[in-house]
């Protein structure tokens, strides 16, 4: 019974972890290098700001999605939910403008409403999944259709637009910033940092991973499985609301095509980042890298005539698969 073999294994262990970590980062750096090679404006302040700011909606949502997926869940409804929350927010803000005029309280009310309706929407998903016991895929597929219909109905099939003056007042939330960094970027960074800390350094994050890894073990370890799982959906809902708060000032409108396919982009970003789709392991910084990879692909394609625009989707798909293959190869080497 000697402890002798203890030191022997440690070296390959370290190498294996590195491979896994490096995968998405290598992909990101490769994309940046390609972008620099193809267009001199790629690294310009304006372009970088554009890419980061537009990534922020999906990014903020994807952070929440990382928790849901890590805990072994899934949420397909976030895109429609974002559209619905945006529509609701615009509608209510327009109504309040009639009463209160173009004033800050209207914006505060709108923001509060977005966060609360996101929370409620997440709560509904979560309760149906945890208390009624319907599979997450089905529940959120259902709510996805419901929210998409609701926004179409709210907008009468058209577009809901914030009143012009209100839009001007609210506009700086997307276009403004401090020290040259725009608000959506700051918001995204804040959410990502907090998310990373919560995931890695709090009991909640650890419990999510435990539940996703083996729900029974989690239950036998006296973790309140249902409550934690419910919390992941609520958190995601609130983050969807927060993303909407950043989204609405951009164009000041919402329509049936708002947030279309955001759910898939968010899920793709999470998976590219190295979180396991079946749950049990998640990392927020990976998700952030995943979101940036997805955004950069679109950006680079727009900045060049490299391929026919008909093939944009194919390039995106190939990069997604490649990024994941790189990682899984790293994982398989263990």
């Amino acid at each position: 019974m000697s402890m002798a073999p203890a030191q022997k294994i440690s070296t390959p262990a370290r190498r294996r972890i590195d491979l896994q970590v490096v995968g998405p980062i290598v992909a990101l750096i490769a994309l940046v290098l390609i972008g620099m090679a193809l267009n001199s404006n790629f690294l310009s302040y304006a372009n970088i700001t554009n890419v980061l700011a537009r990534s922020s909606f999906i990014g903020i949502i994807a952070v929440g999605m990382t928790f849901v997926i890590t805990a072994g869940g899934l949420d397909l409804s976030v895109g429609s939910m974002a559209a619905f929350v945006a529509g609701l927010m615009i509608l209510v803000m327009n109504l309040l403008t009639d009463r209160l005029g173009v004033t800050l309280p209207v914006i505060f009310a709108g923001v509060a409403l977005a966060l609360i309706s996101g929370l409620v929407a997440g709560l509904i998903n979560g309760l149906l999944i945890t208390r009624v016991g319907i599979e997450a895929f089905i529940v959120t597929l259902g709510t996805m259709g419901i929210y998409r219909s609701l926004i179409t109905w709210l907008a009468d099939g058209g577009t809901l637009s914030l009143g012009f003056e209100m839009r001007e007042l609210y506009r700086p939330v997307y276009y403004g910033g401090i020290a040259g960094i725009s608000w959506p970027i700051l918001a995204f960074v804040a959410v990502a940092i907090i998310g990373e800390i919560v995931m890695r350094h709090t009991a909640f994050g650890r419990h999510c991973a435990a539940i996703g890894s083996n729900e029974r073990v989690a239950r036998y370890s006296s973790i309140a499985v249902l409550r934690v799982r419910l919390a992941t959906y609520v958190l995601l809902g609130v983050l969807v609301g927060f993303a909407v708060v950043m989204y609405v000032p951009r164009l000041g409108s919402a329509s049936a095509s708002t947030g279309l396919l955001w759910e898939l982009e968010a899920i793709a970003a999470v998976i590219i980042g190295g979180t396991l789709l079946k749950g049990g392991f998640g990392r927020i910084w990976g998700t952030v890298v995943g979101v940036l990879i997805l955004s950069l692909i679109g950006n680079i394609l727009n900045l060049t005539d490299f391929v026919s625009p008909y093939l944009n989707g194919a390039i995106q798909g190939a990069v997604i698969i490649l990024a994941v293959v790189l990682q899984r190869k790293g994982a398989a080497d263990r």
């Binding site: 179409t152 009468d156 099939g157 058209g158 577009t159 329509s255 049936a256 095509s257």
Partner: peptide, 8 residues
């Protein structure tokens, strides 16, 4: 169905 502005 009213899935985009014009169809709306």
């Amino acid at each position: 169905a009213a899935t985009h502005g014009w169809a709306g």
